[in-house]
């Protein structure tokens, strides 16, 4: 166990993907260690979305390997990855609008708990679904809205709900695809607090919001034109000349 503890949960080796003549992922190598918050940043068109799609199984790479918990999952179907413990929050919010907030999370717990061919017991009275669900809502700070219908949530709150649903599948790794996108400043500050409170959970975060990334990440990988040009702590990245030239320079 101690030997395993520092073995990476996710290891990407030499991953390549191109569309026509455009190389979107160019020999990417990356390791996510247990318990760390690892952020991927990069200018628009750097291939962040393509990369995360290959990790969650929506796109298949041309070559290279993805290892998750020492298993090769390069060609595994998306829903099997979910079962294996790799959860993803969506860039476009995707929740069940006509159910209560708690129902959403409980359904996610239920999906994790095995098949759902149970026709008799009311799902809303099953404590082993409701209690973990409520616990996840507390983690993301939505416990006060548990009974409300999901369509009444604000955009940011729906994002929080997404995260709660991803947490409910008890993942070993959480893929967060631009969780701050389209969220107002006030709400995004609240979400940064939420992610801080989740620290210790292994997370791979793709995000545009630099303030959020530097506040949250233990390590950052910088993706430019499909290549990882640097990986390091926030301080190392801030002082890396390549990064400043390729990326941060444009920002300021």
């Amino acid at each position: 166990m101690t030997a395993d503890a520092m073995a990476p949960i996710l290891r990407i080796e030499n991953l390549c993907k191109s569309f026509g003549g455009v190389t979107a992922t160019d020999a990417v190598g990356l390791e996510v260690l247990p318990g760390e918050t690892h952020a991927i940043i990069g200018p628009n068109g750097a291939g962040k979305t393509t990369l995360i799609s290959q990790l969650s199984g929506l796109l298949m790479p041309d070559s290279g390997h993805v290892y998750f918990k020492q298993c090769d999952i390069t060609r595994l179907a998306a829903h099997k990855r979910a079962h294996a413990g790799l959860a993803r929050s969506f860039q476009i919010t995707s929740v069940f609008m006509q159910m209560s907030v708690l129902d959403n999370v409980a359904l996610s717990v239920q999906a994790r708990a095995g098949h759902s061919f149970h026709f008799w017991t009311p799902a809303r009275t099953i404590r082993k679904l409701r209690e973990p669900a409520m616990e996840k809502l507390e983690k993301v700070g939505l416990q006060d809205r548990a009974g409300d219908i999901t369509s009444s949530l604000s955009h940011g709150e729906r994002r929080q709900l997404e995260v709660a649903m991803a947490l409910a599948s008890e993942p070993d790794l959480l893929l967060l695809d631009e969780p701050m996108a389209g969220v107002g400043t006030e709400e995004s500050a609240r979400m940064v607090d939420m992610f801080k409170s989740l620290h210790g959970m292994t997370m791979l975060l793709v995000e545009h919001d630099m303030d959020a990334v530097f506040a949250l990440a233990d390590r950052i990988s910088v993706l430019v034109y499909g290549r990882v040009i640097a990986t390091g702590t926030p301080d190392e990245i801030r002082s890396n000349q390549d990064v400043v030239r390729a990326y941060l320079g444009e920002e300021t």
Binding site: F96, M99, A106, S116, H118, P122, R124, L129
Partner: peptide, 15 residues
């Protein structure tokens, strides 16, 4: 409709 099966059934309608 209120069972676990029902939750999946209703979930499929919504998303």
């Amino acid at each position: 409709v209120n069972s676990r099966f029902g939750m999946v059934l209703q979930g499929a309608k919504q998303n």
